[in-house]
């Protein structure tokens, strides 16, 4: 009996320590923005709003959030549209070597948005006159996310019965009408998942905008965060914590909203 109790106590202590690793940074993020002169420790906040006033006065902080939003929404839009069309085609047309193609794309895409292809991507952007262009960043991020999005969506498409589309076809619907009237509504949870995943990816991406956007006014929040230093070259915890909170809230809200509306599913299929 004693052994059991001690075992339980040990187990819960271990869980508590593990959880602390995740909770304390989050607690800091929640508390520090409301604390005057925050440090690295988690303290009970004195609920000042001065930090928020300071961040509002920062010339690039709020516009950078708007930039982030633009990049994220633009990329998500392109990813969803192209991935849906490509996944539908790949799911319905039998191509020799289709699966190999998908896997190769998936493998390569983890390099394309990654650090490895940094130099050639920069070169490419220079040649195409896409330096300092938000559209250029959107295109490159879209390219990087598409393979994985196609891969996930194809699974959704595979699990919707063909008879729906054939039925619409016999009634005279064109391929695009079939996609609009039948396929898209059936895979809507999949599209929502892909959109959220793309937004979250872009929102957190630092390297590509840092590399391709030198104009501060165009830089997204992830890059601006990197510039929040005091005159002394120290990390400005007041601005960093406050901006960090503002930076994470939209993504959390989006997750909650989409999860409530569609529920997250990484597999397709409709109940029949």
């Amino acid at each position: 009996m004693t052994r059991f109790v001690l075992g339980r106590i040990g187990f819960y202590t271990l869980i508590a320590v593990l959880l602390a690793f995740f909770t304390i940074p989050l607690l800091w993020l929640a508390a520090a923005p409301f604390t005057s002169d925050p440090t690295y420790e988690v303290r009970v906040p004195d609920f000042t709003l001065d930090n928020f006033r300071a961040i509002l006065e920062h010339p690039y902080a709020l516009p950078s959030l708007l930039n982030s939003l633009m990049l994220a929404v633009g990329t998500a839009l392109l990813v969803v549209v192209f991935a849906a069309l490509a996944a539908y085609a790949l799911s319905r047309v039998r191509l020799p070597g289709r699966d190999a193609l998908l896997y190769a794309l998936l493998l390569l895409s983890s390099i394309i948005t990654g650090t490895a292809a940094m130099v050639p991507l920069f070169q490419l952007a220079v040649e195409l006159n896409l330096i300092d262009s938000q559209f250029g960043v959107i295109l490159i991020l879209t390219g990087g996310l598409l393979p994985a999005a196609i891969f996930m969506l194809k699974d959704f498409m595979d699990s919707t019965p063909k008879s729906y589309e054939e039925s619409a076809r016999v009634f005279g619907a064109s391929p695009l009408q079939i996609v609009r009237h039948v396929v898209v509504p059936l895979v809507r949870p999949g599209l929502a998942t892909i959109a959220v995943w793309a937004v979250a990816n872009v929102w957190g991406n630092f390297l590509m905008p840092y590399l391709l956007l030198s104009d501060v006014e165009k830089q997204p929040a992830a890059v601006i965060m990197y510039t929040l230093y005091t005159e002394g070259g120290q990390a400005n915890l007041t601005l960093l914590s406050t901006f960090g909170l503002l930076y994470s809230v939209p993504v959390v809200l989006m997750y909650l909203f989409v999860s409530k509306k569609y529920g997250f599913r990484f597999h397709g299929g409709i109940k029949r």
């Binding site: 019965p161 008879s163 076809r169 016999v170 009634f171 064109s174 509504p185 029949r272």
Partner: peptide, 19 residues
Amino acid sequence: QPGGRDIAMVFQDYALFPH
């Protein structure tokens, strides 16, 4: 094409659009 043949078809699973 099927749509131009002026026919209508009932599928084995009926293929009613669930949405």
